[in-house]
Design a binder for these strands. Structure first.
Lengths: 335, 335
DNA sequence: GTGAAAGCGCTAACAT
DNA sequence: ATGTTAGCGCTTTCAC
C-alpha cells in the first residue's frame, strides 16, 4: 500500500522511534536528523496513518453527528458550527442523517461507537432511553443540540423555546395586535412543539388577551405544507385574525404562499412572524420577521462542550442560547 | 476502556480466533460455541473496534466528502444521496466544508488521507492540479460531483450544464418570448458559469434571436444578492425584456424579490426560470419554474462509483445525469 | 472445530 | 540523541 513509518526510518537510517518523535514534535533528536527525516518524508510522500494512531491513543479525532431529516438550512447551519469547532480542535465529523421514524438511529449509534468516535452530537431528536443507555454503556461523551432531555443527565445546547415563543407573541402584541393566531407545529413534540405553544399562551394571558382553541392550529409537522394547509384552517376557525405566529419559518413561508393565493396582503392585512431565521427568511416576499436562533454558534458550542469533556472528563453545564427578534417586513404595526 | 475481543474470549472460554470467526460469519465453530459466545457479547455489551479492524483490513468503511460553501439545500440533497449510498454499502461519511477560497481544501484532503478514507467525493469545486496529484499519489479513489475535470482522468457525475441552459432558454422561446435576458452567475466559473452562458447563447442563435451583450448580466456569484442586484441592471441595459433565465434558483429568488419591490408582476409582466430546483423553488411566490437536477440521485451515483472502484479497481465511466424542466408558475406564455 | 502466534502501523516506555 | 521492544484490538495463517 502506501509508505509506513518503517519505510521512512529505513530510508533515513534512523529508528522508527525517532521518526515518530519528529512527527509528534517531541524532544529527543538533533536538528540534523530532523531535516534528514523530513526530507525523506517529503520525497516519499509519506502520510502518517491515523488509524494506527487511533488504535494506540484511543482518540480518533472524529466526532459523530446525528440529525433527523430537517429543513436543510437549519441542518447546514448547525453542522457548519459543529464542523468549525471540530476543525479548530483538529477533528473531523461523521454525519448521520436518521430517518424521522428513528429506527435508523440505533444503527447509527452503534456504527459510531464501533468506529470509536470521541464523542457524539445528538441533534434535534428526542433522546430515548435506549439510546442513552447504549451510549452510556459505551462511555462515549454525548451532547444534545437543539433538543434536551428531561430524564437523563446529558448536557444540551438550545434556545429556550418557551421563552422564544413568548417573545414572538409579545412582539405581535406590542405591535398592537390582539387577534393573534398560531400555527403550532406538532404539539406532541415535547421539545419544540409543546413549549412554543405554551409560550404563546402565556404571552397572551399576561396581556389579558383571550386565547382559546380557535387561536391555534396544530399541524402535524413544521414544514411548508403545514403552513399552506394551516392558514385556511386558522382563518376558518378564527376569521378576525390579524397576526400569526408560525412555529417555524417553513410554516411561515407556507402561510405567505397561502395568503398570496387567497389575495390576502402581508403585512397589510395579515402580519406573520416565523421561528428559526433560516437563510430563506430574508428571501421571502415580503422578507420574514422571525425569531432568530444563533444556529452556527449553537453547533459550535455543542462541539466545544464535547471537547471540554475530553479534556476535563467532567460534564459541563448546559447552555441556553439567546434568541432574538429579527425584524423584517412581514409584521405591520396596527393602528 | 471498553471490552475487547480478549475479554469476550476469556469469558466464553474460547480463543480470540473463534470469537473473531463468529463475529465475521466465517466457518469454523459449532453452533454451541456460537451461542455461548454471542451470549457473552450480549452480556458484556461488547462492541468490536472498527479502528483495529481498519488497521488490518486496510478498509475504514468511511468516505470523505469535500464541499465548498454552497446553497444549503443543494449541499443537503447531494449529501443525502451520498449518505444513502454509503449506508447501503456499510460505510459512513466524513464531511468537510471547504472555504470558497480553496486554501482549506488541501488541508482537508490531507486529513482525509491520513484517516485512510476509502475514497473521496469531491463536489462542486474545480479539481486543481495540486489536489489531483496529491490524491493520486495517495492512491485514494476519487470522484467528482457536480463538477468535472478537463485535465485529469477522474470520473464525474453531473448534468450537462450547456445542454441544461439550452433547455431553459428554449423553454422560454417556446413560450413565445423573444426578448430574453440572462443573469448568469460567474462567467469565470468554467464548470457552472461559462457552459450555462454558452448554452443560453446557442439556444438563442438556433432560434435566430439576436443575443448581444445587453441580454446578459454577469454577476459575481450564484446567490440571492446577485439576483437582487442583477435585475435592475438587466432592465436598465435591456428594457424590453419579458423573460429571464437565472443561472441558479437563488438568483431567481433575488429576481423575484427585486421585481416585487419594483412592482413588476411575475409572471404577468416578467417570466422567470431558474436552475437547480432547490427545495425552496416550490415555496416562492409565485412557485418557481426551473431546471431540475436529480441532486439526491447524483450524490448516490457518485458514491456508488466509489464503491465500484473499490470492488473492481477500475475507473468506471462518468455519468451525465438528466435534467428536466420543472414547470411551476413563474413563466407565462406570451400571446 | 479450535487455538497459538504473527503482524497491521504506530506510540511509549525503557534502554543505551 | 537514538534504538529496542512491547503492545493497541483485531484478522489470519498455520497447526492440531
Amino acid at each position: 500500500m502506501s509508505y509506513t513509518i518503517k519505510d521512512v526510518a529505513k530510508e533515513a537510517n534512523v529508528s522508527i522511534a525517532t521518526v515518530s518523535r519528529i512527527l509528534n514534535g517531541q524532544a529527543g533528536y538533533s536538528e540534523k536528523t530532523k531535516i534528514k527525516v523530513m526530507k525523506v518524508i517529503e520525497e516519499l510522500g509519506y502520510s502518517p496513518n491515523a488509524v494506527a494512531r487511533g488504535l494506540i491513543n484511543k482518540r480518533t479525532h472524529t466526532i459523530g453527528v446525528l440529525f433527523p431529516k430537517l429543513s436543510s438550512s437549519l441542518v447546514t447551519d448547525l453542522l457548519d458550527g459543529i464542523e468549525k469547532a471540530a476543525n479548530d480542535n483538529g477533528s473531523s465529523v461523521i454525519v448521520c442523517h436518521t430517518e424521522s421514524n428513528g429506527k435508523k438511529t440505533m444503527n447509527y449509534l452503534q456504527l459510531l461507537i464501533e468506529k470509536r468516535v470521541d464523542g457524539i452530537v445528538f441533534a434535534s431528536e428526542v433522546l430515548k432511553e435506549e439510546y442513552y443507555q447504549y451510549v452510556k454503556k459505551a462511555k462515549v461523551p454525548i451532547v444534545l443540540l437543539s433538543t434536551e432531555s428531561y430524564a437523563f443527565p446529558v448536557p444540551y445546547v438550545k434556545v429556550n423555546d418557551f421563552h422564544a415563543a413568548y417573545t414572538a407573541a409579545k412582539y405581535l402584541i406590542d405591535k398592537g395586535h390582539t387577534e393573534i393566531g398560531m400555527i403550532s407545529g406538532n404539539k406532541e413534540d415535547i421539545v419544540a412543539g409543546k413549549p412554543r405553544i405554551d409560550g404563546f399562551r402565556k404571552a397572551m394571558a399576561d396581556s389579558r388577551i383571550v386565547c382559546e382553541e380557535r387561536n391555534i392550529v396544530n399541524s402535524s409537522g413544521f414544514g411548508f405544507r403545514d403552513g399552506i394547509v394551516g392558514l385556511p384552517k386558522l382563518i376558518e376557525q378564527f376569521p378576525s385574525v390579524t397576526a400569526i405566529f408560525a412555529a417555524s419559518d417553513e410554516i411561515a413561508m407556507g402561510v405567505l404562499s397561502s395568503a398570496y393565493q387567497q389575495g390576502i396582503k402581508v403585512p397589510e392585512e395579515l402580519s406573520v412572524i416565523g421561528f428559526d431565521n433560516l437563510d430563506l427568511a430574508e428571501m421571502t416576499i415580503p422578507p420574514l420577521t422571525t425569531i432568530g436562533q444563533p444556529l452556527v454558534k449553537m453547533g459550535e458550542v455543542a462541539a466545544q462542550i464535547l471537547f471540554k469533556i475530553f479534556e476535563t472528563g467532567e460534564i459541563p453545564e448546559s447552555r441556553i442560547m439567546p434568541h432574538k427578534v429579527v425584524e423584517r417586513l412581514s409584521v405591520k404595526e396596527r393602528a
